[in-house]
Design a protein around this nucleic acid. Sequence first.
DNA 1: TTGTAAGCGTTATCAA
DNA 2: TTGATAACGCTTACAA
Lengths: 331, 331
Amino acid sequence: MSTATISNAFNRPDQLSAKLRERILRDAAKLGYHGPNLAARTLRRGESDVIGVMLSDSLTYSLSDPVANQLLQGVSEVLVERNKHLLLLSSHIDSSEQRGAESLPDGFILYGTIDQPSFERVKRTGKPLVLVDFESDEITSVNIDNEKGAYKIADLALKQGSNEVAVLGLKLIDFDRVCRLTQADLDAEYKEISRSRLAGFTRAATENGCAFQPDSVWHIPINSTANAEIAAREALTKHPRPNVLLCMSDVIALSAIRVARDLGLDVPNDVSITGFDGIPESERSNPPLSTVCQQSIEKGRLAATMLLDGADDKQVTLETKLEVRGSIGNS
Amino acid sequence: MSTATISNAFNRPDQLSAKLRERILRDAAKLGYHGPNLAARTLRRGESDVIGVMLSDSLTYSLSDPVANQLLQGVSEVLVERNKHLLLLSSHIDSSEQRGAESLPDGFILYGTIDQPSFERVKRTGKPLVLVDFESDEITSVNIDNEKGAYKIADLALKQGSNEVAVLGLKLIDFDRVCRLTQADLDAEYKEISRSRLAGFTRAATENGCAFQPDSVWHIPINSTANAEIAAREALTKHPRPNVLLCMSDVIALSAIRVARDLGLDVPNDVSITGFDGIPESERSNPPLSTVCQQSIEKGRLAATMLLDGADDKQVTLETKLEVRGSIGNS
DNA sequence: TTGTAAGCGTTATCAA
DNA sequence: TTGATAACGCTTACAA
């Protein structure tokens, strides 16, 4: 009974008699053998059955973000189906351990705006890559049309005949605190999807005759309730008070709804609030949030499927769907 | 220049001259070498720097569950700090790929009630294990006192002088649909933490003179909004209508609050509703939810720390904290 | 149908 | 300070 036969017992049942195979498996179990070792198998075969998901934000934060969560749900659904495993990585880091972890997966899903060095490093592995909410020439990616989605919801909110608009933006500049923008901020090059959303808001505002100034645009560095509440409070106590608040994420918009209530404002009669993403909680708020639903779960499913099926060099743009709910006025 | 020297250049800078080391690193970068390969290193050293988190529910579901999410946040916080990596696994599965994935990690965190075969398998790896929300003799674990937490919140809700109690329970029996319990269900052995919560509810009800029957107890198989709404609707339309609804999770309780509103019931005047867990959303509901806060993030941190620091054979019980908020009547 | 042997990329040991 | 070598556990030609 050689090692080869044992290997075959586990991996190629047709290469030996059923009887021998059974005996081997039984003996292995008896000896407490746990089955082929992944490290050794990977080394030999060059395939680990592990898929890496690299997140642009920190792991801890990403796990708390409802949108990232939905993406991961979609990804995991497909991976489980295909018997692949999920290794979570985060960008920014460049330790030797990080590089080690990067060497294991058979392929990567890169979510969000990955920093340049990490991106280069992963590209150089030569392994298949699928980008999500991030684009790069010649690399397979899954995105939505952020400009269009933002335009649609802003247009809807502004059609109600409003005249004072504020924007609660996500990651508009490279700064780690909540603040308003300046014209210089806007002119600076910054390659985040939020800039496309801002472009959509701006186009809708211009078309509806209520263009806004940079100082009506807030920058929020990270999609958390705490940050959003600060910005919402500033925006809603500004003079003149905005009667339309366009938010770049549902987390932000939901925070804004709560802040508005705290300030004694009625949503939508005093102020209309719109979100972006379509997270589950957006349906449950009071009033329910009007938002741009971007099907994050489906995005994850699609990205994983494309990665595993080797859909090279396809750049997919998913449709967004407007969810019109109570947080927009109908005056 | 031998492989050994190159290895040293990456792992033991003191074993060669700075000059040579620098040259090696530079050349390696130029050649597109990504750094030591994890599979090979693991094979040789017997250590992967990967930690496995095995979830009792499916991966996809767990990623959507706010409580599991908080646990994972805590775990990831510590892992990132320690330069370890996170492999997500789920219980129930026993494919060869699963066993492969199980062979990689240096240790495991087992979250929830892991099925017996998976648990045995992981135990036999001989690697360090930390159980969370799950106990087994002689194995390190992190738990809370579910009976006590449940007792405290139930006692608080029932002190208000109510007389009709219903319970929305999570995973009380082995059945995949929402249903009420029978006495036989209660008598059957079932080793889930929810049984301890039920015991706490029962004790408080008995002490407050409003003991409930099995048919006032609902079983919900999985902690999702959809399931919870079905159960909540059944419970709140029962005759006589309960004026206290004790829920075994915040997701369930938040759903119940919405269902109550749909039915035109005022919370807490018509019905008091209590939760369990202390998820972020519980603060934001309308009215805010009274619940038992179980510090899930801290649980994750602690479990990861104990795993990495080799706290063998310690069985920790974390304190729970009562959060008294608007969903309980003060009549 | 079964066994032999090479080699995957590392690192630890030991020798130079 | 550096280099040669064996071994980690597995899979896959190929030989028996």
